[in-house]
Design a protein around this nucleic acid. Structure first.
Length: 255
DNA sequence: ATGGTAGAAACTCTA
């Protein structure tokens, strides 16, 4: 079983690239973030024509998440339980016996921003909700844009990024607390190339200059991690014409 | 050089 995640930064612009990704990799599940589409604008028929089912939860201009799958999504839920968040950042479904949670964790803007407080609060609420999900679904995968680089090796220049949003200590602690629930950063189960990143800022010509961060992750419960055979970043997607600023990440799980 | 680019929307916000 192949599970993938990709922050597409506008599904309207990236739809042809998403369809190509599906055709090339044939993932069982693809989680999307930053679709930036209201639900009545979602390209359902294009996804169906590609042989995929889809559930989604979006809004105008910002945020928006979706789960594409070969098999039927069941027990679909939107958002975080007991948290009335107007921002559309979470969608979950049970697919082929795996509970899939697609997350777009807030960016935080900068550590002095109100949005940074919202991000840390949001991470606390996610943690609480994942505790419950883990009890209910031992086979759990949380895929998405976490907007957190967990370790020094996940950032091109840790010194430069020290104390900055995406890399600050409180964010990294929140990430560790998610892992401490009994989850595992699937990328680090395997040997990986140095300077493996999943996001490069458009603004600094980051991709061309190798200025990246690894902020897109697939966390797996122990029950899934023990059957995980690979985890890879599809870095070449970032070199495409009109690329998203994020590359997809994909795991393979033996079933 | 506290810059730069990209997307959506609508003369600004978010990343």
């Amino acid at each position: 079983m192949k599970l993938a995640t990709w922050n597409v930064n506008s599904l309207k612009v990236r739809l042809p690239q998403v369809l190509d990704f599906l055709a090339v990799h044939k993932p069982d599940v693809l989680c999307l973030q930053e679709t930036k589409l209201e639900d009545d604008k979602f390209p359902v028929s294009d996804i169906h024509s590609a042989g995929y089912q889809v559930v989604f939860c979006g809004q105008k201009a910002y945020n928006g998440v979706a789960i594409l799958s070969l098999h039927a999504p069941q027990e679909v839920t939107m958002g975080i339980a007991d948290f009335d968040d107007p921002q559309k950042r979470v969608i979950s479904a049970a697919i082929d016996g795996v509970r899939v949670i697609c997350v777009y964790i807030p960016n935080g803007e900068n550590v002095m921003s109100e949005k940074y407080g919202y991000k840390l609060d949001w991470l606390g609420r996610l943690n609480t909700c994942l505790k419950v999900e883990l009890e209910k679904y031992p086979r759990l995968a949380i895929l998405g844009d976490y907007n957190i680089a967990p370790e020094n090796r996940d950032v091109h220049d840790p010194k430069l990024w020290e104390g900055k949003v995406l890399f600050s200590e409180p964010e990294q602690s929140a990430f560790k607390e998610l892992v401490a629930l009994g989850l595992c950063d699937s990328f680090r189960l395997f040997d990986q190339a140095e300077k493996s990143y999943s996001w490069w800022d458009y603004r600094t010509n980051g991709f061309k200059r190798g200025l990246g961060l690894r902020i897109d992750h697939i966390l797996l419960s122990a029950e899934l991690a023990k059957y995980c055979k690979s985890c890879a970043i599809d870095r070449e997607r970032r070199a495409h014409d009109r690329p998203s600023d994020h590359a997809p990440v994909m795991v393979e799980i033996e079933t």
